[in-house]
C-alpha cells in the first residue's frame, strides 16, 4: 500500500496538470473504485466538499479584502506617506538651515567689512577733526600773539612819541626859562618852536 499510493498520486498529479476536468474525471473514477467508503475519495477533489469550502472561502476572503482595503492598507500607506513627508520636510528644513547659515556667514562678513570701513572712517574723521582743531587753536593763539605784539609795538611807539613830546616840552620849558632869565621875555610857543627846529636838524 505504501508503494501503491505514491504511484497513484503521480497519476493524480499529472492528471491535475492537464485540466481540472481530467482531474475530476479521475476523482469520479476513484469514487467508483473506492466503493461506498467516503474516505477513499481523494479529498482535494471531493466535489461534495466544494460547496461548503466555497462559502467559507467567500466569507473569509470578503472579510479579508475589506479589512485590507478599508483598515490595514490605508493605515500602512498613511504611515509610509507620513514618514516620507517627515523625511522630506526634515531634509528641506536642513537645507533651509544651511542656506540660513550661509546667509548669516555672508552677512557677518559684510558687517565686519562695513564695521572695519566705518572704524577707518571714524579714525580718519577724528584725525582730521583733531588736526583742524589744533590748526584753529594754533591760528587763534598766533593771532592773539600777533595782536599782543602789535599792541605792544603800538604802546612802545606811543610811549616813545610821548617820551619825545615830553622831551620837547621839557626842552621848551628849559629854553623858556633860560631865555626868560637871559632876555626877560619869551613865550612858551616860541620856545617850543625853537626846540622843534633844533631837534629836527
Amino acid at each position: 500500500m505504501a508503494t501503491e499510493i505514491p504511484v497513484m498520486l503521480v497519476a493524480e498529479a499529472s492528471a491535475a496538470v492537464d485540466t481540472v476536468h481530467a482531474s475530476t474525471d479521475a476523482v469520479a473514477g476513484m469514487h467508483e473504485a473506492g466503493a461506498a467508503l467516503h474516505s477513499k475519495v481523494f479529498p482535494p477533489f471531493d466535489p461534495s466538499s466544494f460547496g461548503a469550502q466555497l462559502i467559507w472561502l467567500t466569507l473569509t476572503f470578503v472579510i479579508l479584502y475589506f479589512a485590507m482595503s478599508r483598515l490595514a492598507l490605508p493605515r500602512i500607506a498613511s504611515i509610509i506617506e507620513l514618514r516620507k513627508a517627515r523625511i522630506d520636510g526634515d531634509l528641506s528644513a536642513a537645507d533651509a538651515a544651511r542656506q540660513k547659515t550661509d546667509a548669516a556667514i555672508t552677512s557677518y562678513e559684510a558687517a565686519v567689512a562695513a564695521a572695519r570701513a566705518k572704524s577707518q572712517a571714524i579714525a580718519e574723521e577724528t584725525r582730521n577733526a583733531i588736526k583742524a582743531d589744533i590748526d584753529a587753536k594754533r591760528k587763534s593763539v598766533e593771532a592773539d600773539l600777533f595782536k599782543t605784539i602789535a599792541d605792544a609795538e603800538a604802546n612802545i611807539q606811543a610811549a616813545k612819541s610821548a617820551a619825545i613830546y615830553h622831551v620837547s616840552e621839557i626842552a621848551a620849558d628849559t629854553v623858556k626859562a633860560l631865555v626868560t632869565q637871559l632876555t626877560g621875555s619869551a613865550t612858551h610857543d616860541e620856545a617850543l618852536k625853537a626846540v622843534t627846529t633844533v631837534t629836527k636838524e
Binding site: 466538499s49 467559507w56 473569509t60 476572503f61 472579510i63 479579508l64 483598515l71 490595514a72 493605515r75 500602512i76
Partner: peptide
C-alpha cells in the same frame, strides 16, 4: 453548513493576517 478544518484554517489565515497587519501598525 459544516465548519470543517478547512474553514477553520481559512478563518485562522484571515484572523492572523488582519491581527498582524493591524496590530503591528
Amino acid at each position: 453548513l459544516g465548519f470543517t478544518n478547512s474553514a477553520l484554517f481559512m478563518v485562522l489565515t484571515v484572523v492572523l493576517i488582519v491581527t498582524f497587519l493591524l496590530g503591528s501598525t
